Simulated assay, not measured.
Amino acid sequence: MTQSISHKSLYESDFLLWTQDTIAKLKAKDFDHVDLENLLEEIEALGNSYRDELASRLETLIEHCLKRLYVDMPQEFNGWERTIREQRRRIKRRLQKTPSLRTLWDEFILEAFEFALETVRDDYSQYQFPDTWQYDLDIDTILNIDFWVNCQE
């Protein structure tokens, strides 16, 4: 009778313990015993998660800006404006902690507008939304200007 033996790595069986073990080995400069393959995978995933976070927050921000600008539901304005402020704060924080994400702004903002536009058109089909963003797309404008202030309500 043969017995199946599982040879799961520490990475596969206990991720937290693997991180602690990896940190200890790196601090001890025991580079020969570091699980380099999984460490590289995790570092790459961390970088990708920052990119994904920025893209997601931009989409949410633009979606709520579009609703605030073009959906005539005054009872919802306060909630949309709160979400806009929150997303702006979190985007600013992420850009402070990860300034290299600024280089991806132009790529991400256009994609965020396209996805946000698709969402608001699905959710609010009775309202008209522009095919293009009517304001500047630079970081300072998107993160600081209350576009609806100059709109006629």
Rank of each mutant, 00 (worst) to 15 (best):
I109G: 07
T141Q: 02
L137Y: 05
R85G: 04
E76C: 09
R51A: 09
M73Q: 05
G47T: 09
A55W: 11
D122M: 08
E107D: 14
T141D: 14
C65V: 14
P99L: 09
T98W: 10
Y11F: 15
E53Y: 13
T98D: 01
D122L: 06
I145E: 14
G79I: 03
S6I: 15
L104S: 13
W148G: 05
C65W: 00
E118W: 05
N78S: 13
L101R: 03
Q3C: 13
Q128G: 01
F147A: 04
C65N: 13
L101F: 06
L61Y: 05
N144D: 12
S56M: 10
W80N: 03
F147K: 01
I139D: 03
D52W: 03
R90T: 04
E76M: 12
E118F: 12
I84C: 09
L40I: 11
R57C: 02
A55V: 04
P99R: 01
F115S: 10
Y50L: 05
R93Y: 08
L17Y: 01
S49V: 00
A116R: 12
L101P: 01
Q96S: 15
I84Q: 02
E12G: 11
D52K: 14
L39K: 03
I139S: 01
K92G: 07
E111R: 15
N38Y: 08
R93I: 04
T98K: 11
K29L: 05
S6A: 04
L104Y: 12
Q20T: 09
I109V: 15
L104Q: 06
N38D: 08
K92C: 06
E107W: 02
D131I: 06
I23D: 03
L10T: 04
D146Y: 13
V149K: 14
R90C: 00
T83N: 01
E44W: 12
T83I: 15
H64R: 03
S13Q: 11
L54S: 09
L143D: 09
L137T: 15
T119S: 08
S100K: 06
I23F: 01
V34I: 15
Y135I: 01
T132G: 11
K29D: 10
C151H: 15
P130I: 15
L40P: 02
D72A: 10
Q20V: 07
Q134V: 10
D123H: 07
W148D: 07
I5K: 09
L61K: 02
V71S: 08
E37T: 14
E12D: 13
R85N: 07
I145C: 10
A112N: 09
L69N: 15
R93F: 09
K67T: 02
M1G: 15
E153H: 13
E114T: 04
K29Q: 11
L61G: 02
N150H: 14
F115T: 09
G79Y: 07
E153K: 14
A116K: 12
K8I: 01
R94E: 11
E44M: 08
T132S: 15
T19R: 11
D146G: 04
I23H: 05
I43W: 04
H33S: 12
H33E: 00
A24G: 05
R93V: 12
Y124T: 10
F15H: 15
L61C: 01
I62D: 03
E37C: 01
Q3R: 12
I23C: 00
T19S: 09
Y135S: 11
E114A: 13
Q152K: 15
Q96V: 09
E107H: 04
G47M: 06
D52Y: 10
L69H: 02
